[in-house]
Write a protein that binds this DNA or RNA. Structure first.
Length: 286
DNA sequence: ATGGCCCCGCATCGGGGA
């Protein structure tokens, strides 16, 4: 099963490019961020024609997330409030459409669009940190449900200096500050691992290039789009790549897709074939 | 040396993103 993530910066403006890429790559799952469209205007037909089901959560002009899947899409959960109904901070944090998840082949696919924060002096930076603290609580609840987790999206954070083209200049600033890096690490809490770094330790691999300053032509990028896997899925990961060629398209998104390949099928953890995963006491004795 | 863009909408500039 291949799971992809792509911040498309308007799904309507980028529709032809997304359709082309899906036809070429045919991932089972594509998670989109910054769809920038209300649910009634989402271009469902174009994706349905390619055989994809959809779970969407959008708003006008800003934000917006969607999950496209050619495999059955079950138990869709929208926003932090789906798992944190009692959290007094979560409702305010969920007014912006940045969180959606679904169960696909027994894998909980969680699609996130983390706030950018604008600058360290902006109120939006405080919002970003509060949002990440909420994500930490959300993931703690999610972990309790026991499903294998694949968390993808635009994290608007370069986790380490090797994820930025010019760490001497940029480390400490927005998307590379200590507080936001710590907040993300705390949310991962040792349970989730960066799939890309399983396969590639070197710097020089970016997923986002600013539209300004000729960043693409100079390859001045950041790796801020990530795929995180729980331990059970980590063992199944056979590759993780950034499709940077899309950034060279005419009228491109400023982000490139990231794709993970998982040697996974539903029920594969059912070792004795009794319809239950082992070790949880639910199955009959062997 | 610095910075240059792009998308949306009650639009033709302003707000916001990254």
């Amino acid at each position: 099963m291949r799971i992809a993530t792509w911040n498309v910066n308007s799904v309507r403006t980028r529709l032809a490019q997304v359709v082309d890429w899906l036809q070429q790559e045919r991932p089972e799952v594509l998670c989109l961020q910054e769809t920038k469209v209300t649910d009634d205007l989402f271009p469902r037909d174009a994706f349905a024609a390619l055989g994809y089901q959809m779970a969407i959560s959008g708003q006008k002009a800003y934000n917006g997330v969607a999950i496209l899947s050619s495999l059955p899409l079950e138990d869709v959960q929208v926003g932090f409030e789906a798992l944190l109904p009692e959290d007094p901070e979560a409702p305010g944090l969920s007014e912006q459409k940045r969180v959606i998840s679904a169960l696909i082949e027994g894998v909980r696919v969680l699609n996130l669009y983390v706030p950018n924060g604008s600058s360290l002096r902006s109120d939006k930076y405080g919002y970003k940190l509060a949002w990440l603290a909420c994500l930490q609580r959300y993931l703690a609840v999610q972990a309790g449900q026991g499903d294998p987790l694949c968390m993808v999206g635009d994290f608007n954070i370069a986790p380490e200096d090797r994820d930025i083209h010019d760490p001497e200049r940029l480390t400490g600033g927005i998307m590379a500050s200590a507080l936001e890096r710590q907040a993300l690490a705390a949310a991962l809490e040792g349970r989730l691992s960066d799939a890309f770094r399983l396969f590639e330790p070197e710097a020089g691999h970016w997923s986002w290039w600013d539209y300004r300053s000729g960043a693409w032509d100079r390859d001045r990028g950041w790796r801020i789009d990530h795929i995180y896997l729980s331990e059970d899925l980590l063992a199944c990961a056979t590759g993780c790549v950034i499709h940077k060629a899309t950034r060279g398209n005419d009228q491109p998104s400023d982000h490139a897709p990231v794709v993970v390949n998982l040697a996974w099928s539903a029920g594969q953890d059912d070792e004795d074939g009794d319809g239950f995963s082992d070790g949880d006491g639910d199955g009959p004795p062997r």
